[in-house]
Computed example of a mutant assay.
Amino acid sequence: MTPAPQDEEETGIHCRLDELLAERGMTLTELSARVGVSVVNLSVLKNDRARAIRYSTLRAVCDALDCEVGDLLALTPES
């Protein structure tokens, strides 16, 4: 995952990672250990600063959280 530059426009996609972790009583550190992705990279995703995510990472996160992609990523309403 690559952090988005600060001046880049919003993607209109929100990552619900915080909410899903809270619902499951799981920490970012625990998720990191389960999926093999650094805490820093998961934090980038969690804070909606990722420009891209590998399908393999997306699959691993969804498997670890027992969720669907649509549970993790949501479109934000247009302003």
Rank of each mutant, 00 (worst) to 15 (best):
P3W: 02
P3A: 08
A4D: 00
A4M: 14
P5W: 02
P5T: 11
D7K: 15
E9I: 05
E9W: 12
T11Y: 10
T11P: 06
G12E: 08
G12L: 09
I13L: 15
C15Q: 03
C15T: 05
R16P: 03
L17S: 01
L17A: 09
D18A: 12
D18I: 07
E19C: 14
E19M: 08
E19Y: 04
L20D: 00
L21Y: 09
L21S: 02
A22G: 13
A22R: 08
A22E: 05
R24K: 14
T27V: 11
T27N: 06
T27H: 05
L28M: 10
L28I: 13
L28C: 04
T29S: 08
T29W: 06
E30C: 05
E30N: 06
E30D: 04
L31R: 03
L31N: 02
L31D: 03
S32R: 05
V35A: 04
G36R: 03
G36C: 06
V37N: 02
S38L: 09
S38E: 02
V39Y: 11
V39T: 10
V39P: 06
V40S: 15
V40Y: 12
N41D: 10
N41H: 10
S43A: 14
S43Y: 10
S43T: 11
K46E: 07
K46Q: 10
N47V: 08
R49M: 06
R49D: 04
R49H: 13
R49A: 06
A50Y: 11
A52Y: 12
I53P: 05
R54A: 15
R54M: 13
R54E: 11
Y55D: 08
S56Q: 13
S56G: 14
S56H: 15
T57G: 11
L58G: 00
R59A: 12
R59C: 06
A60T: 07
V61Y: 00
V61F: 00
C62S: 01
C62A: 00
C62D: 02
C62P: 03
D63R: 03
D63T: 01
A64Y: 03
L65R: 00
L65F: 02
D66L: 04
D66M: 02
C67T: 04
C67H: 04
C67I: 00
E68Y: 12
V69F: 10
V69A: 12
G70Y: 05
G70K: 06
G70N: 09
L73E: 03
L73P: 01
A74M: 10
A74I: 13
A74C: 12
A74F: 12
L75D: 08
L75A: 15
P77R: 15
P77V: 13
E78V: 13
S79Y: 14
S79T: 13
